[in-house]
């Protein structure tokens, strides 16, 4: 009778991607209603959600407007820059 052997399980090498946040910064030039329109266009947000985010940008100086995969975040920042909104991205904590 063969002796029993213990096989080692392969270690999982799956890593979860760190989410990235897209931020929009306040500035003295862009109009509040324009910022709302751009947030609706770029992210497909409702009027209510876009207005809430716009107000957060205005009162806090910046707001996280989207969080998710890095490539998508880069795409969104590019769209926001194309609309002349001051925006950047950072790793979510």
């Amino acid at each position: 009778m063969p002796s029993p052997t213990i096989s080692k399980k392969a270690k999982s090498s799956i890593q979860t991607d760190v989410p990235w946040s897209v931020l929009v910064l306040d500035d003295p030039v862009n109009l509040m209603s324009y910022v709302t329109i751009i947030l609706k266009r770029v992210f497909g947000y409702s009027e209510e959600r876009a207005t809430t985010l716009m107000m957060e940008i205005h009162t806090s100086g910046r707001a996280v407007v989207w969080t998710g995969a890095k490539e998508r975040a880069e795409f969104y920042v590019q769209q926001l820059h194309g609309s002349q909104l001051k925006s950047t991205m950072e790793k979510s904590v």
Binding site: L25, V77, H81, Q84, K86, S87, T88, M89
Partner: peptide, 9 residues
């Protein structure tokens, strides 16, 4: 303007 916005990255 393009360069200024890129500076934010």
């Amino acid at each position: 303007l393009a360069e200024s916005l890129a500076g934010l990255m």
